[in-house]
């Protein structure tokens, strides 16, 4: 048992942190729900950090921690497929890559701009190359570019020899990591706000009613952080389900509290809080949401439900 990063993992995370810091101040707020950053994407590609998961000395732990860090940026970048799925399972696919679960014709984040799409239906995994013309962008209340395939069955789908269960585990891990980063960034922004904002003659953050709710949020975020890293290390079904169940489960309360304490400023597009909370609202429903992860956890721990489906 050794719950600290290795020197190699630290070096990668420091490099990622430096890139993130360069972009942190460059967000353009006020105009849109989300902001894709081609420059950030290019910097990450250039530094080769998306290969980390497949490197023995770094591995999924470092990749998950990298996703946690990059999700704290106000700008968004496609992370889960690029940092986890492709390096570990589908090295031939180009980035960015969108992922469709269960149906080819549903809306999905990252379809606009994606160069490839993966679709998982049951145990079958298939992939197709994409151009911008293949995708119809959709308006959405979520902090990602969202679109739908214009003619899903007309694409050149190729079946992939990939274990759908393994892919699902990595997706659970990635969503848990991205949620952790979003909630963490939102929490830090709100903590900074309540330290400064004064009402009734003192900082909001000096009121115990607010302290306790933010402290509870901190407990949830830290638990999400370490559950995710454990899941990255062990690669087990149970740990992946635990990490995502926890993160998805705590999201509604944490997001509500963050907005509550940011007040009206957090309702504007000028403040970055929405960049994290609107992403979190999409991520909390991925793969069926917390209830589905809890079912998966029960199955993985205590055996499948003998009466399932009856």
């Amino acid at each position: 048992m050794n719950i600290s990063f290795t020197p190699d993992q630290h070096a990668l995370l420091d490099a990622v942190d430096r890139i993130a810091q360069r972009h942190e101040g460059k967000a353009t707020l006020g105009a849109s729900h989300f902001e894709e950053s081609a420059a950030l994407q290019a910097d990450l590609e250039g530094a080769g950090v998306f290969d980390a998961a497949a490197m023995e000395e770094l591995g999924p732990v470092a990749a998950a921690a990298m996703v946690q860090r990059l999700a704290r940026l106000p700008q968004c970048v496609e992370l889960i497929a690029s940092a986890l799925l492709l390096p570990l399972l589908a090295t031939a696919l180009p980035r960015p890559c969108a992922v469709l679960w269960d149906q080819r014709d549903r809306p999905a984040r990252w379809l606009p701009g994606a160069r490839a799409v993966l679709c998982v239906r049951g145990n079958r995994v298939e992939a197709a190359p994409l151009t911008d013309d293949d995708v119809a962008p959709l308006d959405s209340p979520f902090g990602y570019p969202v679109g739908r395939l214009r003619a899903p069955d007309a694409l050149a789908w190729t079946p992939l020899d990939i274990d759908a269960q393994a892919l699902r585990r990595l997706w659970q891990l990635g969503v848990a990591a991205e949620l952790t980063g979003c909630l963490d960034a939102g929490l830090q922004a709100v903590v900074a706000h309540v330290r400064e904002r004064r009402q009734f003659g003192r900082p909001l953050g000096a009121f115990q009613a607010i302290q306790h709710r933010l402290a509870q949020a901190a407990v949830q975020v830290e638990a999400a952080r370490w559950l995710t890293l454990q899941a990255a290390f062990t690669g087990t079904q149970a740990d992946a389900a635990t990490a995502l169940a926890h993160a998805q489960q705590c999201t509604p309360t944490v997001v509500y509290d963050l907005h509550q304490f940011m007040g009206a400023m957090g309702l504007t597009l000028e403040h970055p809080l929405h960049r994290w909370t609107t992403r979190a609202k999409m991520l909390r429903a991925d793969l069926g949401g917390a209830q589905a992860q809890l079912r998966a956890l029960a199955n993985a721990t205590w055996g499948a439900n003998e009466k399932a489906g009856t």
């Binding site: 903590v191 330290r195 953050g205 000096a206 009121f207 115990q208 306790h212 933010l214 402290a215 901190a218």
Partner: peptide, 16 residues
Amino acid sequence: QLNLVAHEWLQLPREP
């Protein structure tokens, strides 16, 4: 414990 998390982990100001 929550007070301590607020003060020492989140660096929030103490109640007067």
